[in-house]
Deep mutational scan, measured.
Amino acid sequence: MQIFVKTLTGKTITLEVEPSDTIENVKAKIQDKEGIPPDQQRLIFAGKQLEDGRTLSDYNIQKDSTLHLVLR
């Protein structure tokens, strides 16, 4: 499925993911596309910070959802 990741600069990254993918996995995909190390990434969805060990389906993230990427 496709999800979107919006950065603070207003750029939107499109990712191909599975509901069973972990947040860690998603961060690795963002690193592949953007070169941002996962340890600098914070992903936010519906006002919640997403934890590495959980999956997209744990957070009820569905296709065409938009996550927000904050760098630390």
Rank of each mutant, 00 (worst) to 15 (best):
Val26Gln: 00
Gln49Ala: 10
Ser57Glu: 12
Gly47Thr: 06
Thr7Phe: 08
Leu67Val: 11
Ile30Pro: 00
Glu16Pro: 08
Ala46Ser: 04
Ile23Asn: 02
Asn25Gly: 13
Gln41His: 04
Lys27Trp: 06
Ser65Thr: 15
Pro19Arg: 04
Asp64Arg: 05
Leu8His: 05
Leu43Trp: 01
Ala46Lys: 14
Lys33Gln: 13
Thr55Pro: 08
Pro38Lys: 05
Thr9Ser: 14
Tyr59Ala: 03
Leu50Thr: 04
Val5Lys: 00
Ile3Ser: 00
Asp39Leu: 13
Ala46Phe: 08
Thr9Tyr: 03
Ser65Tyr: 08
Ala28His: 13
Met1Phe: 07
Asp21Ala: 09
Asn60Tyr: 11
Gly10Arg: 04
Tyr59Asn: 04
His68Asp: 05
Leu56Trp: 01
Glu18Ser: 15
Tyr59Asp: 02
Lys6Phe: 14
Gln62Tyr: 13
Asp58Ile: 03
Ser65Trp: 07
Ser20Tyr: 12
Gln62Thr: 09
Asn60Trp: 09
Ile44His: 06
Ile61Trp: 01
Gln31Asn: 12
Ala46His: 15
Ser65Arg: 03
Arg54Pro: 15
Glu51Tyr: 03
Leu69Gly: 01
Gln2Ser: 15
Val17Asp: 01
Leu50Phe: 02
Asp32Tyr: 06
Asp52Ser: 08
Thr14Asn: 05
Lys6Pro: 01
Thr14Asp: 06
Glu51His: 15
Lys63Tyr: 06
His68Arg: 02
Ile36Arg: 02
Thr55Trp: 05
Ile3Trp: 00
Gln2Pro: 04
Met1Ala: 03
Thr7Arg: 07
Pro38Asp: 13
Asp52Lys: 04
Lys48Asn: 12
Ile30Asn: 01
Val5Thr: 02
Gln2Asp: 13
Lys63Phe: 14
Leu56Asn: 01
Pro38Tyr: 06
Gly47Arg: 02
Lys29Thr: 07
Asn25Thr: 13
Gly47Tyr: 14
Gly47Ala: 07
Arg72Asp: 08
Asp58Ala: 12
Arg72Gly: 14
Glu18Gln: 10
Arg54Asn: 12
Ala28Arg: 09
Thr9Leu: 12
Val17Asn: 02
Met1Lys: 02
Lys33Ala: 11
Asp52Gly: 04
Val70Arg: 02
Asp52Gln: 10
